[in-house]
Design a protein around this nucleic acid. Structure first.
Lengths: 168, 168
DNA sequence: TGATAGTTTCAGAATATATTGAAATGCTGG
DNA sequence: CCAGCATTTCAATATATTCTGAAACTATCA
């Protein structure tokens, strides 16, 4: 591999890894995702251990997480008993899968809780302010959640261009 | 304060605090934000230390972060030398400020880096796959960044209803 | 200007999170 | 069914992050 290409890959993997924690994803998982995104071939657990210099346990756990998130698939290489992994190739699909998972795991549960908090606070004078605030927040998060869900269902070309046009 | 209101507030604060780390924000900062959102009056550093059971240093640092993010303002109570803090009241404004900060702090830098990675990988055959992948990712992130920026500039009623209609 | 109340800083401590590596388990072909 | 390789698990460890609290600093008042 040309030296500059290797440098570019490493820089990309490192940068993607830094971004992870800022969005609540652990560094290694993000690096692993970046590595698989730019890898031409599926990689085995041993490959990623070697490339990122991490342990088998760590590699295994984070590969599984990526599979659970639906952005990486298990792949089979004929004549080899090892499991291989390859990233979803289409970036729009990748985005949709991440959006749907975050919606399900992180947005919907908090919506539930907010609704419970509202129910818990009786409709008396003392609760007015609390109910207003949480109510408005709930409305906004619900709307954003709905919009995200809709967008993540569509073909890229079906929705982004129209939103772009709307915003001009 | 009625017991059920207090319970509802605590539940809300706790739940908002849990959500923080999932999105790359520390628990205390998220709790502090929740506390200020549902508080009728501005609160002093001592108030939040008391309410959340945290140290002065911790309270000070996280209050400052919230001010830096633009979702909390310093407030002055006449006849009192203490500084008080109050949350931005309007949830849409809050959303816009967070969106703009994340864009500036977390999206734009990674866009820069990705562009550098592309520049670093020469235009030869060996780099084709890498350039395609990073290129497509860059395009999508750029578009989402642009959309987020536009939305976060608008009045709530100017944009959300139109997007909702588009998605029906 | 000195006394007092308020705010910030930051080294060390506490806590939470991520990682390792070896043992246990699971699989597959012969 | 067993030998050999692959995968998973998890207790111990390492690392990263957050938090504390007291000292340093700042602002205000008399």
């Amino acid at each position: 591999m040309p030296e500059n290409l290797e440098g570019a890959k490493n820089r990309f993997i490192h940068s993607w890894g830094e971004m992870g924690p800022q969005w609540g994803i652990n560094r290694t998982m993000a690096q692993l995702h970046a590595l698989l995104m730019v890898s031409e071939k599926p990689l085995s657990t041993d490959d990623v251990m070697e490339d990122l210099g991490i342990s088998r346990g760590n590699a295994n756990m984070n590969l599984r997480s990526l599979v659970d998130w639906g952005v990486v698939r298990r792949a089979f290489v004929k004549g080899d008993r090892k499991e291989y992994f390859q990233s979803e190739k289409d970036v729009w699909n990748m985005f949709c899968r991440i959006a749907r998972e975050r919606k399900k795991r992180e947005i919907e549960p908090v919506l539930e809780t907010m609704q419970e908090c509202l129910a818990l606070a009786e409709r008396d004078k003392a609760s007015t302010h609390f109910r207003e605030r949480v109510g408005e927040l709930l409305d906004l998060v619900k709307t954003l959640d709905y919009v995200l869900g809709k967008i993540a269902q569509q073909e890229k070309n079906a929705v982004l261009p129209r939103i772009l046009k709307l915003l001009t």
